[in-house]
């Protein structure tokens, strides 16, 4: 079996220790893990959803701008960090699976390992406000 790269494993261990929401994806953008804080934001446990392809997670939470206009996947920080391997930052709204809307600020960074290999990306979310 193909194990995760050590940089991704360590990123998950860091995420496990943080009380801010963290998402981790592989080089193709597949969502590999989100931590307990992100579960609160998304309204669904990682154990229940498991891994998700980019096409699914990038639309499942209905990201919108401040005017309620849908944000296309390519404009999401984590998608941008993954596809273009650059850091990316944005504030927007998302709707969790339990129906709540959250205004979040997201910082996403590519994860480049010791061998200069791009092994995935990580996004850290900051929840600004929540509306029922």
């Amino acid at each position: 079996m193909a194990g995760r790269s050590i940089e991704i494993i360590l990123s998950r261990q860091l995420a496990d220790c943080l009380n801010v929401p963290v998402f981790i994806v592989d080089p193709e953008g597949n969502l590999l893990f989100y931590n307990a804080a992100a579960e609160g934001l998304l309204g669904r446990r990682f154990e229940d959803t498991g891994e998700m392809p980019m096409e699914m997670w990038s639309t499942a939470f209905h990201p919108t701008d401040e005017n309620g206009k849908s944000i296309p996947p390519n404009e999401l920080p984590l998608v941008n960090a993954t596809k273009n391997q650059v850091p990316s930052h944005k504030s927007f709204w998302l709707r969790s699976l339990d129906g709540k809307s959250h205004n979040v600020t997201v910082m996403a960074i590519p994860i480049v390992g010791r061998s200069q290999e791009f092994v995935g990306a990580m996004a850290i979310f900051w929840a600004n406000t929540t509306k029922a």
Binding site: M1, A2, G3, R4, I6, I9, Q13
Partner: peptide
Amino acid sequence: PMIGRTKLYDDDSWVSGFDLAY
């Protein structure tokens, strides 16, 4: 193989060194 946890991850692919030792 784990930092800040009390047990290894359930999914083998998340365990450092797993492939080497399998």
